[in-house]
Computed example of a mutant assay.
Amino acid sequence: MSAFAGEITRVWVGGSFVSAKPDPSDVDVTYLLRAEAYDRLDRETLVYLDELTLRAWCVDNDMRVDAHLVRLPERMAVSEMLPSLLQRRTSESFRDIGLYDELWQCTRGASGSNGTPGELRRGYVEVLL
């Protein structure tokens, strides 16, 4: 994916692949793509990348990967990181980063059969490229 899209600066890796499970079932990956690179991609490329990161596509192609592509927000001063000052795309980028951060840290199945995450937290590895 990084060869196709370019400018992926960070990758979050999690899931049972990075756990102590003797037979891990998959690896969870979030590709964090610089805003400038993401914004240069045309609609066809974004659709292709979205399909490439679909769990069903990965399973159909014998890949044990649950992958997501997230647009990083533009670089800005911390003083500009107020919700009321953010443009729509930047706000969505921060929202998506927070969503996947929360998702990868949740322990699934820990609180019963309804699928709600438990209080326990796990982690993921951030790889800088």
Rank of each mutant, 00 (worst) to 15 (best):
residue 1 M to R: 07
residue 1 M to I: 05
residue 1 M to S: 12
residue 1 M to Q: 07
residue 3 A to M: 05
residue 4 F to M: 03
residue 4 F to C: 04
residue 4 F to R: 10
residue 5 A to W: 04
residue 5 A to R: 06
residue 5 A to M: 09
residue 7 E to F: 01
residue 8 I to M: 11
residue 10 R to D: 14
residue 10 R to S: 06
residue 10 R to G: 00
residue 12 W to E: 04
residue 13 V to M: 11
residue 14 G to V: 01
residue 15 G to F: 06
residue 16 S to H: 05
residue 16 S to W: 02
residue 19 S to F: 07
residue 21 K to G: 03
residue 22 P to A: 12
residue 23 D to N: 12
residue 23 D to A: 08
residue 23 D to T: 11
residue 25 S to P: 00
residue 25 S to Y: 01
residue 25 S to L: 05
residue 25 S to R: 12
residue 26 D to I: 08
residue 26 D to M: 06
residue 27 V to F: 04
residue 27 V to L: 10
residue 27 V to S: 07
residue 28 D to K: 00
residue 29 V to P: 02
residue 34 R to W: 03
residue 35 A to F: 01
residue 37 A to D: 04
residue 38 Y to L: 03
residue 39 D to K: 02
residue 43 R to M: 03
residue 44 E to K: 10
residue 44 E to F: 02
residue 44 E to Y: 02
residue 45 T to E: 14
residue 45 T to M: 15
residue 47 V to L: 14
residue 47 V to W: 10
residue 47 V to S: 04
residue 51 E to Y: 09
residue 52 L to K: 04
residue 52 L to E: 13
residue 55 R to M: 08
residue 55 R to F: 11
residue 56 A to M: 08
residue 57 W to C: 00
residue 58 C to I: 01
residue 59 V to N: 06
residue 61 N to D: 06
residue 61 N to Q: 11
residue 62 D to F: 03
residue 63 M to H: 09
residue 65 V to C: 03
residue 66 D to I: 01
residue 67 A to L: 04
residue 72 L to F: 07
residue 73 P to Q: 06
residue 75 R to A: 10
residue 75 R to Q: 08
residue 75 R to S: 07
residue 76 M to V: 00
residue 76 M to G: 06
residue 77 A to T: 01
residue 78 V to P: 00
residue 81 M to V: 15
residue 81 M to L: 14
residue 82 L to V: 15
residue 83 P to F: 13
residue 85 L to W: 04
residue 87 Q to H: 14
residue 88 R to M: 04
residue 88 R to Y: 02
residue 88 R to L: 10
residue 89 R to T: 12
residue 90 T to R: 05
residue 93 S to V: 07
residue 94 F to V: 12
residue 94 F to Y: 15
residue 98 G to C: 12
residue 100 Y to I: 13
residue 102 E to R: 13
residue 105 Q to Y: 02
residue 105 Q to W: 06
residue 108 R to G: 14
residue 108 R to M: 03
residue 109 G to E: 03
residue 109 G to Q: 09
residue 110 A to F: 07
residue 112 G to F: 05
residue 114 N to P: 00
residue 115 G to L: 07
residue 117 P to Y: 07
residue 119 E to Y: 11
residue 119 E to H: 11
residue 120 L to T: 03
residue 121 R to H: 09
residue 125 V to Y: 14
residue 125 V to N: 01
residue 125 V to C: 09
